[in-house]
Design a protein around this nucleic acid. Sequence first.
DNA 1: CGCTACATTGAGTGAGTTCAAAATGCGTGG
DNA 2: CCACGCATTTTGAACTCACTCAATGTAGCG
Lengths: 284, 284
Amino acid sequence: MLATPNGINPTMARPADAAWQRSAKLWSTLSEICDLLHIHCAGLALESDSAFQHVQFKSGQRIHTIGQPFDMLYIVNSGFLKTVMIDESGNEQVLSFPMRGDLFGIDGIHNKHYTSEAVALSSCDIILVPFKKFLALGRAHPELETAIYSVMSRELVREQAMVGMLGSLSAEARVARFLVPLSDRFGAMGYSNKEFNLRMTRHEIGSYLGLTLETVSRTFSAFNEIGLIAVDQRAIIINDIGALRTLRRLPPSRARIKQQAQIQAQAAAMTQAAAIAANTQGVR
Amino acid sequence: MLATPNGINPTMARPADAAWQRSAKLWSTLSEICDLLHIHCAGLALESDSAFQHVQFKSGQRIHTIGQPFDMLYIVNSGFLKTVMIDESGNEQVLSFPMRGDLFGIDGIHNKHYTSEAVALSSCDIILVPFKKFLALGRAHPELETAIYSVMSRELVREQAMVGMLGSLSAEARVARFLVPLSDRFGAMGYSNKEFNLRMTRHEIGSYLGLTLETVSRTFSAFNEIGLIAVDQRAIIINDIGALRTLRRLPPSRARIKQQAQIQAQAAAMTQAAAIAANTQGVR
DNA sequence: CGCTACATTGAGTGAGTTCAAAATGCGTGG
DNA sequence: CCACGCATTTTGAACTCACTCAATGTAGCG
């Protein structure tokens, strides 16, 4: 059995009671934010007067919704979320799974309204970053400004990589590559990069990868069978990260070989059957 | 057959003859650039001293390549291009088809190197925008700065919409929705939004949409058959833009009905053949 | 304990791919 | 100007991967 990293209990959400508020960290400085975003702000003059508020969300709560007026960016300090688009026929499409250090809400800048919604998948500690304030600080600190652009560019590159993946990779390759950055991120956060728990359902993974939940489940099972991973519900053990990184198509497994043997046996039989049928009926 | 749409010569989009070269505009002012990007810079102090150079490219030439150090953004003044990613196995993946008013090169900001390459699909007039210079101007003009962020955010939203499309729509819906913004753009540029010439190959469209070139070709043919469009090679006439906007799956056409009738007829024949084969061999 | 949400697995189907062939268009050089 | 070669497009036929539909299994929670 896998231990639950950092012991977060994915309980049902409901409005904020005062209990957690007391123990939670309520404000972050600019330099803490830079650390979180992996921005090198060595020469940044510390302005302790400018601080950013934290807000806690419980699993299931929405950080922002589609169409809501934009005025904030959000940075994940802890916890796991999903961002979701809704297409014209009402279907959800998962766009990303933000976690510690990720910035989201950028899509709201353009239209002054968010085009996606962000939902907590676990208890989350989110830093509020008023966009106006951020811009003002950027103007004061050129290296911060370029960092902002850099982060936005990174998101664009990430989306492009996503497009590339959806456009060209098989289901198996998509699932494999879904696990790789997840492992990396867990590792970077100080947890094991071998063993961790998925925070999202098969349905959400499928939506993210452009697959059905059944295909995701089957692919996990297939990886499990060949020993690439060990999977039990949401608990995952990564056995061969290298293989996952480069996988394009699944190598034939025992089951598949057996199946192929069947097919070949059938084919042999069919050859005779077809000949007979053709002689009798002139089909095809 | 199709008359050449609105008199554009399909072979060379905007003529690349010497006359054009001579009359080509070599420099643009900031306010011209704002117009091009659809940025409202009403109160922008005109700085005629800051001008941006134009460069001409011929079909097939690369504006920037993957891995090249980043220092410029690019704005399309005229012509048509594609931007391309190359995955680890060497396959191209088309990411966008920039045209007049589009900004590209943003993906280079993050890593200080471009992660994609841009190739001219026709003769192109491109405005060079040194990133440093752009930033400096943004600092001087707050409304320009927010506009820059807005444009970057727009690109992100566009990529997200692309992800949504690749993740959830059928081949037919993708091809239909590929044509819609193209029509809009041609209309916005003063050309006909009903009749125009595609500037890219079926292969490039397929790569962009996550489909094979054959599927793209077949889908065009199917749309042609139901009268949604008229297509002859790269010449396109849009007959029912509304249907293209909302299309999710193709309604059964005459040909499909015919085909289904055939299948049913075959099925009837097969029943007998199968019965005979089964009696003889016990297949399946 | 039973309810609900989530996950797994099987069987059959179908949309899109792959492989292949033929047609069309276009530039080039004789 | 025509003939040739090459790139692109169209169309057919067969296959296959991922989807759909359905049933069963499992975990968490009131």
